[in-house]
Amino acid sequence: MKCVFMCVILVIMGGSTWAQDTCSSSLSSLNVCTPFVVPGSTGNPSSDCCGALQSVSHDCLCSTLRIASRIPAQCNLPPFSCPN
C-alpha cells in the first residue's frame, strides 16, 4: 500500500525540471521508512529512515503533502479526516 502511495506521489510530482526530479528522488528514498508508517507499526524509525527523511527538503515534503491532500477531491471523494 505504501509503495502504491509513493508511486502516485512520484507520478504527480513527475516533471522535467531538476527540482522536481530531485524531490521525486528524495521521496523515493523514504521507502526505508515503510515499516514505521504502516498501521500497527511499533518501535522507532531506523537510522536509515531518519537519514532519508533528513535528506528531503522542507519544500519538497510540504509540497508533496499539499498535493496528497488534494487527491480525494480530484477523485470526487470527501476530504480525509484523521484523528490525532
Rank of each mutant, 00 (worst) to 15 (best):
Ser55Asp: 15
Cys3Met: 09
Arg70Gly: 11
Pro78Lys: 04
Gly14Trp: 04
Val32Leu: 13
Cys82Gln: 05
Cys75Pro: 07
Cys49Arg: 05
Pro79Val: 11
Asn76Met: 09
Ser46Pro: 14
Cys49His: 03
Ser63Asp: 14
Cys23Ser: 06
Cys60Thr: 03
Ala19Tyr: 14
Asn76Cys: 15
Ala73Gly: 10
Pro78Gly: 04
Gly15Glu: 00
Ser25Asp: 15
Met6Lys: 01
Gln74Lys: 10
Ser81Asn: 03
Ser57Phe: 09
Val32Lys: 06
Pro45Ser: 12
Asp21His: 06
Cys60Phe: 05
Ser55Thr: 10
Gly40Arg: 13
Met6His: 01
Ala68Met: 05
Ser69Arg: 05
Ser55Val: 09
Ile12Pro: 00
Ser69Phe: 00
Leu61Thr: 13
Arg66Asn: 11
Phe36Glu: 11
Ser55Tyr: 07
Ile9Lys: 00
Pro78Cys: 02
Val11Asn: 01
Ile9Cys: 00
Trp18Gly: 00
Asn76Pro: 04
Val4Arg: 09
Ser57Arg: 07
Thr42Glu: 01
Cys60Met: 04
Ser63Arg: 12
Phe80Ser: 09
Leu27Ile: 01
Leu77Ala: 11
Cys50Ala: 13
Val32Cys: 13
Ser55Asn: 15
Cys23Arg: 01
Phe80Trp: 10
Ser46Phe: 09
Asn76Leu: 12
His58Ala: 13
Lys2Phe: 06
Ala19Asn: 13
Val38Glu: 10
Thr17Ile: 06
Trp18His: 01
Val56Cys: 06
Asp21Leu: 04
Leu10Ile: 08
Gln54Ile: 06
Phe36Trp: 12
Gln74Ala: 15
Ser26Gln: 13
Ser16Phe: 05
Met13Asn: 00
Ser28Pro: 05
